[in-house]
Design a binder for these strands. Sequence first.
DNA 1: CTGATGACCATAT
DNA 2: CATATGGCCATCA
Length: 149
Amino acid sequence: MPKRPSAEAEAFYIAVYETVQRIPPGKVTTYGHIARLIDAPQNSRQVGSALKYLHDAPQAVNGNAADLNDESDWQDFFHLFNNETVPWWRVISADGKIAFRARGAMDEQGHRLQAEGVDVRNDAHSRPRIIDLREHGWFPRPEDEESDG
DNA sequence: CTGATGACCATAT
DNA sequence: CATATGGCCATCA
């Protein structure tokens, strides 16, 4: 069970997750791009930390939440954001390679991308196309956009 | 508090 | 193209 982050860090994580959720299937972007979108251009590494956090999250939280006694908010957190609801596999390094080098994780990310038609061989032969969420109108969220003028 | 670490990035060689 | 280096900043021992 991962330790609950500070309120400030949690807000950052949520911003990362909600932004990553706007990457369409079959498309990929980078850690740095996500960081810039959420107005934290210096925190690309922390974007990776946020995604790693999903990996540490309890997968069975939807079924058994016995361990989560008096922290219902904490349960809701992983109920909303987990390995299946946040497409972490669509985030790669700026050089077009998979950055997740933990045991087996690289293969899993490759498989998930392959299933969406993205070819990532982790070499220069076929670099996936990195998209900019803003250019495609996928960010910011229309509902969050302010209109002061 | 200090020092080490990490799913990063840009630049240099 | 691959490796090395400096910078970055939150997290952890």
